[in-house]
Design a protein around this nucleic acid. Sequence first.
DNA 1: TCAATGCTGAAATCATAAATTCAGAGGGCC
DNA 2: GGCCCTCTGAATTTATGATTTCAGCATTGA
Lengths: 277, 277
Amino acid sequence: MEGKSVAGRIHDAIHRLTAAEKRAARGLLGSYPTLGLAPVAEFAQQAGASSATVLRFVSALGYKSYPDFQRALREELEERSKSPLQRSSTSDVRADADAQFLDRFVAQAVDNLRGSAALIPASEFEAVCARLAENRGACYLAGGRFTDFLAGYMEAHLRVIRPGVRRLDGRPATRADQMIDVKPGDLAIIFDVRRYDPSLIDVATELAARRAQIVLITDEWMSPVSRFAKLVLPCRTEMGRTWDANGSLFTLAEAVIARTTELSWPTASKRIGSIEA
Amino acid sequence: MEGKSVAGRIHDAIHRLTAAEKRAARGLLGSYPTLGLAPVAEFAQQAGASSATVLRFVSALGYKSYPDFQRALREELEERSKSPLQRSSTSDVRADADAQFLDRFVAQAVDNLRGSAALIPASEFEAVCARLAENRGACYLAGGRFTDFLAGYMEAHLRVIRPGVRRLDGRPATRADQMIDVKPGDLAIIFDVRRYDPSLIDVATELAARRAQIVLITDEWMSPVSRFAKLVLPCRTEMGRTWDANGSLFTLAEAVIARTTELSWPTASKRIGSIEA
DNA sequence: TCAATGCTGAAATCATAAATTCAGAGGGCC
DNA sequence: GGCCCTCTGAATTTATGATTTCAGCATTGA
């Protein structure tokens, strides 16, 4: 009984319901789940019943209060939107599934990419690129255990288009040296995803103390570094139960690079020219 | 203003919001629209802000009360489920092309991902993963100027699931040392994309001479290293005229890692367990 | 037709959530 | 480095919505 969907409970219980309660049930199923998320009075009116009847209906479904019932609806809704493709481990045709591993993986990666684009406000993205294109002060990059390579990739590209790009490596011993030149208004880009790296908190704290502006690129669960960040670009990373993928962060990094290049073309083109030579 | 979606309003207003209000905005976008249907206190807690801040946030979006805001969310939800075919996500056509940069970039990246999946034969992909999961001999990784970070990323993951993983760095001086232990039947994964790195040809030549099996991950124009490769995984990278993106290579690398982990789970899980400890 | 039973919704009560206030913290700017 | 101004969240007040009560009405069976 506990783990059942609200709609499921209605179907189970509908025989036991009285006439007016059935109207409530029909109303809810008719615009599911929205009507149940409205206040009781509105639910009642839309369904052509009284508030009291709606409450009795909800109680008959086994919920101990109206808010409790609404919580169930919200959780159901959340569940649905969280997993766009139900990726259960239940064995389908195994050989077939194996053959399509790459396709399925890519489909999921595509979802993550699109989800990320929806999650990131355009103005936030623009602000990051514009700030990078200003060429004001230094620009530091850092990442965690795996995301450090993203920081490295981005550094390699940014070096081409602007001066003052530096990488902060993870070794505590060298951290003080690296931070020594950080000045107020400098920019720092930090990559951090789940199993958030504790050392990045230290780095961010130190950077914040030195008044650097922190840009955080993270996952949908939001690294604790966000506390120190001026700008945050969150990406979707979820791939099934066990594995998170950083592909969306990587593509976001590339988008930032591409856009920044575009914005700072007048100055960047000169640097690029002289590097080619 | 009246007819705008809540998400749209957030995107419009986000630059005017204060730090804590942005946390609220991100929280809502992160689990949209469910969080907004919860009581203020719950919204606040989930988003890491106070109730007061959430109320200010809602007011900043132009709603005259929290219930008013919730009604808007419900109507939106109702709207979406009513329309027979879910039309493509971001419906509003924005006049400002710049504001669309990220969307356009992501759309292109999605094309590349799908194109890559189409370009790579499933059997080729499976062969690479199966060979990696065998745990036979050593596994070397190398990349070019930018793709070296992909090699690094993959190395970091492969180290977790199998022994004998090494990275070949690009310095000619140390190359001889690194190659000294390469044995026939060892595996080498090389990343190389356009403006192909000449030094990788040398590396590949040397590896081939020592009878290593070379796996090449490259772009659609095919690195010259392919001449020495036993298996080739080509990806689409084209993004308009000036810029190639490596996001598809990155995701391919992640797919290989994920699949290899799956295939070698009996042995890999033990390693993972001991690393966690 | 007349009880008896139990469903229903209007109104009263109670609980909880929304809105407001304000003192203190934090950040930015000379 | 110090001042000022804005932002923030705890505490308080206000409002709204959930719950209960109960009188009346409908339905059913004798």
